[in-house]
């Protein structure tokens, strides 16, 4: 019997550390939510597990660092994947020196652009969902992601990060500009359209 250690209990899933064959792996198990009816719960768990797996596999093909997927169980909502040993950007962001912080932000932007070039929308780009390991930023938790080629959706994707930086790293809210700088450099289509969209979304937000 393999041992399981719960690393993190998030809002929708449990992340445990365990072994799979000879590998040290992470299992993401979507937990049943008793507050919602079974129709909705089953639908969300299975579509999210399936969608997340597909997106992670595709992101990897596009050269974005993501965990390797070893196994998927749609019915129980379990994804077994590579364990990335590193630090969450959320935990280190406020303690970096200026140069490091700028560098990280640009890298984040480049990686998001790589995803968007292939219409991969992460759906929950926050600093909790990025891990720094071996000088590379690994993106995890594609649970709210989708495939979508609309400028609007890409704008919303970036807007989530902007709000996350605003709320969690409010002292460094200007650093979102460096994310955009990296994004602009890497994006194949005209990045200004997406940036304009972010501004529209900010204006559209209620009472802003």
């Amino acid at each position: 019997m393999t041992e399981k250690t719960i690393l993190y209990r998030g809002a929708e899933a449990e992340i445990c550390l365990t072994n799979y064959m000879k590998y040290k792996v992470v299992q993401k198990r979507r937990v049943q939510k008793t507050y919602r009816i079974k129709d909705i719960d089953d639908r969300l768990i299975s579509t999210r597990t399936k969608g997340e797996t597909k997106l992670i596999a595709e992101a990897r093909k596009q050269g974005v660092s993501v965990p390797i997927i070893y196994d998927v169980d749609l019915k129980s909502g379990i994804i077994t994947m590579e364990y990335i040993e590193g630090k969450r950007i959320k935990d280190i962001f406020n303690y970096l020196n200026k140069k490091e912080r700028i560098d990280i932000c640009k890298k984040i932007g480049v990686n998001i652009a790589k995803l968007h070039n292939n219409d991969i929308i992460h759906g929950d780009i926050t600093t909790s969902n990025m891990i720094l390991a071996n000088d590379r930023i690994h993106f995890i938790d594609f649970g709210l992601g989708e495939k979508n080629n609309e400028i609007e959706t890409k704008g919303v994707d970036l807007h989530v990060l902007m709000e996350a930086i605003d709320s969690t790293h409010s002292k460094y809210s200007d650093y979102f500009d460096y994310v955009i700088e990296g994004y602009k450099k890497e994006l194949k289509e005209n990045a200004n359209l997406v940036i304009q969209k972010i501004e529209d979304i900010v204006k559209r937000g209620r009472y802003r």
Binding site: R43, D124, I125, T126, L144, E163
Partner: peptide
């Protein structure tokens, strides 16, 4: 009887 409806969340929005 549950009728399927769009369930739309983006991050925490």
């Amino acid at each position: 009887q549950y009728l399927e409806l769009p369930y739309s969340i983006k991050g925490m929005d």
